[in-house]
Design a protein around this nucleic acid. Structure first.
Lengths: 224, 224
DNA sequence: ACCTGAACACCGTTCAAGT
DNA sequence: ACCTGAACACCGTTCAAGT
């Protein structure tokens, strides 16, 4: 991580690190991807760049600005994998799954983005892909907006479940444990039993997206 | 907030505050509800109870434990408003909207719960209500579990959008601003225009839930 | 058993000062 | 223009000590 200089030959006080705002943002992004959102502190980031904390403040405004910049940078780099499928519905669901896949692939940045409320900044290029598919399916205007938002919210909901922090809350207070401890005559034993098993999030997401997309396309004027 | 003692008549050093674990948790819950998740620091909580920070540690383990306990406490108190509607589908959607309503009503605690990954602890009693309605609609076992999870994730997705932090990310990086600045020949002007307007989250949630519930009930064996 | 005081190892941020 | 050093006002947590 300690960039260019391996041990820098200049005496003791190495002035002029030759830093750039982009260098700072790149280092921040790399740090988060490697060690998670919790590792991004101003001191740690400075250490990574072999400078003092205050140097960071000279190049970028503060922590919030570093975070936004880092998210924006990853957003630009997000691989726009081609949308697959023949029927419009399939292609829309696939475009939505692209959002899921890349969010999972960059889970640490995604967690950070949700923490500061900048998830849409991260996902924006992939939202564009979804919009294109919605239009290809014959939707226009507010119908596209509402469909997009519904899809985005669904993916977001599944993401927060998939990226939930593990440590802070003890086992006994997790959903499955709560159901395991829950006695209820009004609920059948087989249902109670099923609720103690972990669901397949990815399969469930696909099913849910299909339901949402089908409902949305049912109101579409033309289905080519 | 400074509980019992109005100015306590005992000399200067007021020992024996007569604190209880429940008192600590109650104060923490009240603090979060009143001033938000950010206000819950050990020092602030101690000040609220007129004791030293270390006293908190004697009664409960640490911050994480305070947070879990506070969420659990509110969970117990959650008003189980009666589910409305005639048809099973209506009732399921209404039960899900109950989750939304109470999460919004206690927004500060909800934000905190999502931060530590304890949202399901908070919503558990309301999840039970949804399960009852799903069974009343004829679902059993894994079908109930998957339907519940899908519903819960949708609500969660809409909640993170509704409770998004406002300050940390500047206007220009919010969804609507991004669309406003986005030039794209492949997307029709009317769609682009629509995307710059704020959607009605509550109406959209209802529509989305209906789509999910309808799809789930389509596979149900009996629909009484 | 219940509570205090001092301390430790962290945060983000600011500001005067150096070259 | 670019970077350092010292400092401020916060965190959560621990530990010896008091009554």
């Amino acid at each position: 991580m300690a960039q260019t200089s391996t041990h820098d030959p200049s005496p003791a006080t190495a002035r002029r690190a030759g830093l750039d705002r982009d260098d700072v943002v790149d280092a921040a992004l790399a740090l988060v991807e490697a060690e998670g959102a919790g590792a991004l502190t101003m001191r740690r980031l400075a250490a990574e760049l072999d400078v003092t904390t205050t140097t960071i403040y000279w190049h970028v405004g503060g922590r919030d600005e570093v975070v936004t910049a880092l998210i924006g940078r990853l957003s630009e780099r997000l691989a726009e994998r081609e949308v697959r499928g023949r029927r419009p519905a399939e292609r829309i669901v696939d475009a939505a799954r692209l959002m899921w896949d890349s969010s999972i692939e960059h889970r640490h940045v995604t967690v950070l983005a949700y923490q500061v409320g900048a998830a849409s900044l991260l996902e924006f290029p992939l939202q564009v892909a979804v919009v294109r598919e919605l239009e290809a399916a014959g939707l226009r205007g507010p119908a596209v907006r509402d469909a997009l938002r519904a899809i985005v919210m669904c993916v977001a909901g599944f993401l927060v479940a998939a990226l939930r922090p593990e440590d802070s809350v003890p086992e006994a207070y997790r959903t499955r444990s709560l159901w395991a401890a829950h006695a209820d005559d009004a609920i059948s034993p087989e249902t109670l039993a099923a609720l103690t098993h972990r669901p397949d999030l990815e399969a469930l997401l696909t099913t849910t997206l299909r339901a949402v997309v089908d409902a949305v396309l049912a109101d579409a004027p033309e289905v080519p």
